[in-house]
């Protein structure tokens, strides 16, 4: 029983072939097997949001699935989003607004923010808070994070309006 399984998946645009134990969560696989330690684990039961990654472009908890389940999927982490410069504006807004302190929740916050900004929905402070409802932060009190996402949404909207005009 419990022999290792070969999986193939795209992580941050790179194809990864790996041999994993079925019980290895995607979070542990990312952090330990391929050293993408930007994704964190805070509860290992899907309630803190620190481990959020994009699975086929949607935020999911990397602690709530096993790496074997991601076979054939595309996974993107904060490292990948950074590398392809998909969240430059968001990171800048977080930095300027000091929307992080210890930084442990930050990758999850960015992934949630990426998801809600990509949804195309009109965002107000309540809807941003709603999008963050599963992301725990002990340091900031959330307001600065909401501010940073609100700023990013506004700048993106202005940018789009300028493009259209």
């Amino acid at each position: 029983m419990s022999g290792k399984v070969t999986i193939s998946l795209a992580v941050n645009g790179e194809t990864i072939e790996a041999l994993v134990a079925p019980r290895t969560t995607l979070a542990d696989f990312l952090r330990q097997d391929i050293q993408l330690t930007g994704t964190h684990t805070g509860c290992e039961m899907g309630v803190c949001g620190a481990c959020l990654v994009l699975l086929d472009d949607r935020p999911v908890h990397a602690c709530l699935m096993f790496a074997v389940q991601a076979d054939g999927c595309a996974v993107e982490t904060v490292e990948g989003l950074t590398h392809r410069r998909a969240i430059d504006d968001l990171q800048k807004a977080f930095h300027e607004r000091n929307a992080l302190q210890c930084g442990f929740c930050t990758a999850g916050m960015l992934v949630s923010a990426y998801g809600v900004l990509a949804s195309g929905d009109e965002l107000d402070r309540d809807s941003i808070r709603d999008a963050l409802s599963g992301n725990y932060c002990r340091c900031t009190g959330y307001e600065s994070i909401v501010d940073a996402i609100e700023t990013t949404a506004r700048l993106r909207r202005q940018h789009m309006e300028k493009e259209e005009a």
Binding site: G38, N98, L100, F104
Partner: peptide, 11 residues
């Protein structure tokens, strides 16, 4: 804070 924002923290 920049490296923390890029997933480059060392915990």
């Amino acid at each position: 804070a920049k490296r923390l924002l890029e997933g480059r923290g060392r915990y």
